[in-house]
Structure formats: C-alpha cells, structure tokens
Simulated scan of single mutants.
Amino acid sequence: MDDLANFLRIRRSRVAPESVGIPVDRHRRVAGLRREEVAHLSGVSVDYYVRLEQGRATQPSEQVLDALARVLRLDETEREHLHRLARQRRRTAKAPSGRVRPELLRVLGLITDAPAVIVNHRMDVLAGNRLAGLLYNRPLQGMNTARHIFLEDTDLYAEWEKCTLDVVGHLRLAAGKYPDDPRLASLIGELSMGSERFRRLWARADVRARGHGCKTYRHPLVGLLELHQENFSLPDESGMELLVLSAAPGSPADDGLRLLASLDSAEERRPRVRAEREVG
C-alpha cells in the first residue's frame, strides 16, 4: 500500500468538518472530511487529490504538500513526515548499519550516575551502561525498548499509556524514513500481532519526534523513579540516539538510583567472596 496515500486517508478522516468551517447535519455519514472538501480547501483539483489517495498521482509539489498539511491540521513533525513520504518515490533511504563507534562507547562509559543507552531508529538497544541494565532489570543485549514496553514489562512504566504513544509515533517516523527496512517491518508486525493497543495506535498514523521529558519508572526493587530523559541525536546519518535518564540532585529518584547501584554492587561481591573461600 502507498504510504503517502494511506497517511492522507487516515488523517483526512480525523479532521472535524466544523474545525475548517464546514457545517454538518445529521445526514452526514463520512468520518472527517470528504475528498472533494480536502481538494477544495487545499486548492487542488478533486481528480488530482483522488489520484493522490489512490497512489496514482505524480510527485506533489512542496506547495501542494504544505496546503494539504494546513487543511489536515498537521503539526511541524507531521508536516515533515508528509513531505518525507512524498519523497520516497524519488529516493529511498538505506537503513543504517547500526555499528557503534568505539569513541561513542567510550563516552557512554563516562556516564556512571545515570542510566544511559544508545538506540537506533528501530529502538534496538545497541549499547548501555551498567545503571541502565539495573533500571530495565534485564540484560541489555538484544533488548528492543518498543518490544519491552508493549510486550515484555508493562509494569515498569508508571505512565505506560503515554509511553506507548511516544513509541508508536517514533516508529511511524522511522517507517517513513526507512520504508524498505525489513527488520523494522518485522518489528511492527510482531507488535501488531502481540498488542491490541499497538494496532489501534498504529491505525491512527500519528507521528512524534522524541525529545526531552519526564519518564517515571516503577522499579520492583527501589520503587518509583521520576527521571528526566534527554535524547541526543548523533550528528551523522546513523539514525542513532544517546538517551540519558537523570535524577534531580537530592530527589527521591536520586536516592533510588544510588540504592539500586549499591544493591547490585553488594550482589556482585557475594559470589567472589564465596569463590575465594572455596579456593582457600
């Protein structure tokens, strides 16, 4: 299915006619706007817009896309996504390899007092520090944060519903950038099969750019952790991000992270003590 056509159809159905000055009576049966209404409001012919929604139109101009974005009430992130979908027909971005540079791993190792991970566009965890493994309460190797949120450990995320919105919005953006990435398509299929909420959210065609903000975790050992997440997109074409979760100094979350680190340190020492006694 044509991604641009699908996006236009879904977002058209979500625009209330009243919001664009179209009166509605009780006989109206269409959810959202009609095709001819979108065409009229955006200044294009009905025939051309119909062909856009059917995936048969030639590449729309920047002006047409901007007009459609205005009518469909798209925000800046969604507008960029619309333009990206239109460009897919001219150029398809190759999915990045996912190799983490040694220098970046060295920087990650310098972060010791806050959980930190490096993720790719699929939300695979490519690397992480010790405290991140303790926060997620599992080995980081092979972890995908989207799968973790939807299918593996929903209880860890105190604001689970908000997290799911962010995840689906990010994966929508990634699918627009890398439509021919088979591993991304496989992940989306797995989440669709395993989670009814993912299916519902994916059908909405929302897109979101991840940024900074509060993330609250309900950890089984140390309780509630209110952390601040900063996302650092790497200035290359890798599609990777460095995510750092920090706690305000002196806050309960700061105490919780320190306690979590100390519990793990004590656990690490026990086997070594036993082993030394056995040797002696």
Rank of each mutant, 00 (worst) to 15 (best):
T164Q: 09
E196I: 08
G194Q: 01
L242W: 06
H170Q: 12
L104F: 08
L134C: 00
C163V: 10
E62H: 13
L135M: 02
D25A: 04
H148I: 06
N231Q: 06
V168L: 05
R34E: 09
E37K: 03
F232A: 10
L173E: 03
L156R: 13
D124T: 08
R274H: 13
R87V: 00
F198T: 04
R204Y: 06
R204I: 12
R73Q: 15
V71P: 00
R99W: 01
P102G: 04
L72R: 04
L242S: 03
K162F: 08
R14S: 07
L224V: 13
R101A: 15
A127R: 05
R11K: 14
W202A: 09
R122A: 00
I188G: 02
H121G: 08
A69F: 11
L41R: 08
D236T: 09
W160T: 00
V64N: 04
S265N: 10
D113Q: 13
E276T: 15
A205F: 07
H81Q: 10
D155K: 10
V222Q: 10
L82H: 09
R147G: 00
H81G: 06
E237R: 04
R138Q: 14
T92G: 00
Q141T: 12
R197S: 13
P96G: 09
P23R: 05
F150Y: 15
M240N: 11
A69C: 05
L33E: 03
L74Q: 07
E237I: 00
A116T: 08
A95T: 14
L74F: 06
W160V: 00
R218A: 15
A67S: 14
V125L: 09
G256H: 12
C163D: 15
R272Q: 11
G223M: 06
R270F: 09
L165C: 11
R270W: 11
D206W: 07
E226G: 11
L165N: 14
F232D: 04
L131S: 01
R147H: 07
S238M: 10
G128N: 10
A5N: 07
D2K: 07
P249W: 07
S13F: 09
L260A: 01
L234K: 08
P252Y: 12
D153P: 01
H148P: 02
G55Q: 03
M143D: 02
G128V: 09
T77N: 08
E36A: 05
R35N: 03
E80F: 03
A86P: 12
L224Y: 11
H40L: 14
R208V: 15
M193S: 14
V207K: 10
T145F: 14
S45A: 08
K94E: 14
G128P: 01
R14G: 04
C214E: 15
L259M: 14
A95H: 02
K162I: 10
E152D: 15
A185C: 02
A132P: 01
I111M: 05
A205N: 13
H148C: 02
S45K: 11
A57D: 02
L105W: 02
L263S: 04
S251L: 11
P249S: 07
M143P: 01
R73Y: 06
Y217G: 03
L65K: 03
A247D: 07
L201G: 03
R274C: 09
